[in-house]
Nucleic acid binder design. Structure first.
Lengths: 283, 283
DNA sequence: GCTATAGATGAATTAAACTCATCTATAAGT
DNA sequence: ACTTATAGATGAGTTTAATTCATCTATAGC
């Protein structure tokens, strides 16, 4: 190509604003640079692009035609760049109520502190708007998710309010909150396996079910019983002395959190967020 | 703007061709330059544009989006530039048969010799295709044309074949070819005014009319009579000793050659052509 | 007729784009 | 499996091109 793109950029701005001076301001250059660019362009193309009427300029017919093309062309490119830049200054995540409320939202500030130039936006619910650059963290069956997409395989255990005494499983009636997913195709929480591993039986246990783990956890924190839920959600609450666990073993489940097409997120922000997320979930 | 246009150009080419090496060849650069440009772009935008699979590359989703935008944008700009370049490497003129045959075509070679980088294309007739960059040289009434558009005001005189003896206007019958324009709104050739200025009367003159001056001139050259026509068309023939004039005075007419919106032709080629044309018509 | 402003011009400076040399990883050939 | 050739990455050095500075001209407004 024999004409410089910067000259075209200068021309586009000057044409749009009808002034070398204003173009210079817009592009953070001196009017001299604009003048050089445009006369360079004119001599390379062998055309006059501006009529010089003393200290005033006006587009020639040829100039007008070129201006239309350059404006449109650059606008197309700029808007694509802008979209990318917008996407790269922040991450937009959507996930389950439980993960959002128990993990993401509490850690949001910490993430933004560690990554000052990345803002984090969290949404939950059925907003299936297939918007570009929206990162969905799904909760599902490990058998269904691509293995490379999985960020956290879920283990389950029983937790209770901090400070309560260890329950005596065989002697007293126990209220245990657990979850029955709204989505029936998901594997159930592995309560039976957990009981077996810990050598317990369910005769004294009175089960209460919610459709989100979140609610059972909140009940447990309020001292209204114990909760059987994923360790991912309670990790932070244990550290913060809001929940405690007992001498029971946790049990693996077929459930996991995963991000569909995890490797297709190419913005650095998304990559950093996903790394950070895997770290806090698997620490 | 924080991203360099040259980097975008490099990216566009690499994306389209799927190879840094090919992009380098297309842009007459080294593969290194392409690599630098693209990594610069990626770090500025905070995104990954290409997946690097060893020595093979493939566009990421973001890269694909950007590639679409840049390809389209640059294509728009390039095609406008190409049109201008094409226009500036040549001039395309359309005019009357007479001016074309008597002046433009005989001088075409001379013009192209003097302007080696400008090719000249001459067309005549009703091809009113309002194509861009086609220069029409019209023949018409000075009162109708914009004065700034006029290139030559026509004077008329009588001419005969080279070497013939001066006609004796009062003693012998004379055949005089003149023109009756097809377009009736044009002023007639000023024959009456010419006779008056030269103190002659038309009693011995036998008029024959064509609708183009060209034909009368050719009859006169063939020795079949005299021709009353514009001096512009005969100037060259006089010099070349193909025609001669006698002791008569030429007479001004209301006719002229003009180029509508003459000042709207901004290509250097067009400007140079128009200057050259005015020169040879008014020399 | 003076002053201020916009642009033109040419030389000097500065910043960027580009290349070179070197290195790594993959793909192909033996 | 080992060698060879190819594509790209990386960092330092060089060259080109973009930008500025100083100066000059012409217009517009006072």
């Amino acid at each position: 190509m024999q004409v410089s793109l910067q000259a075209l950029k200068a021309f586009e701005s000057a044409a749009r604003q009808g002034s070398f001076k204003l173009a210079a301001e817009e592009l953070s250059l001196t009017p001299t640079a604009i003048s050089h660019h445009i006369s360079n362009l004119e001599s390379r193309l062998n055309v006059t692009l501006f009529h010089r009427l003393g200290r005033r300029i006006s587009l020639t017919g040829t100039g007008l035609r070129l201006a239309k093309a350059t404006s449109e062309g650059f606008r197309k490119i700029d808007s694509a760049l802008e979209e990318i830049m917008k996407a790269s200054t922040g991450v937009r995540v959507t996930t389950t109520s439980s993960l959002a409320a128990m993990v993401l939202i509490p850690c949001q500030h910490e993430f933004e502190q560690a990554n000052p130039n990345i803002s984090m936006e969290i949404s939950t619910g059925e907003s299936i708007d297939n918007q570009s650059y929206l990162i969905p963290i799904r909760f599902g069956d490990v058998a269904v998710a691509e293995s490379s997409d999985v960020i956290s395989a879920e283990s389950f255990n029983v937790f209770g309010a901090y400070g309560m005494r260890s329950p005596s499983w065989s002697n007293e009636p126990i209220t245990l909150f657990t979850t029955e997913w709204k989505n029936k195709s998901l594997p159930d929480p592995p309560l039976a396996a957990w009981l077996e591993i810990n050598g317990l039986d369910s005769s004294n246990i009175k089960l209460k079910k919610f459709d989100q783990e979140l609610f059972g956890i909140q009940q447990a924190m309020a001292g209204n019983g114990l909760v059987f839920c994923s360790t991912t959600l309670t990790k932070r609450l244990l550290k913060a002395n809001l929940l405690q666990q007992f001498e029971t073993q946790s049990v693996k489940s077929d459930l996991c959190y995963y991000v569909p097409n995890k490797d297709s997120f190419e913005t650095r922000s998304a990559a950093r967020f996903l790394n950070w997320l895997e770290e806090i979930l698997n620490q």
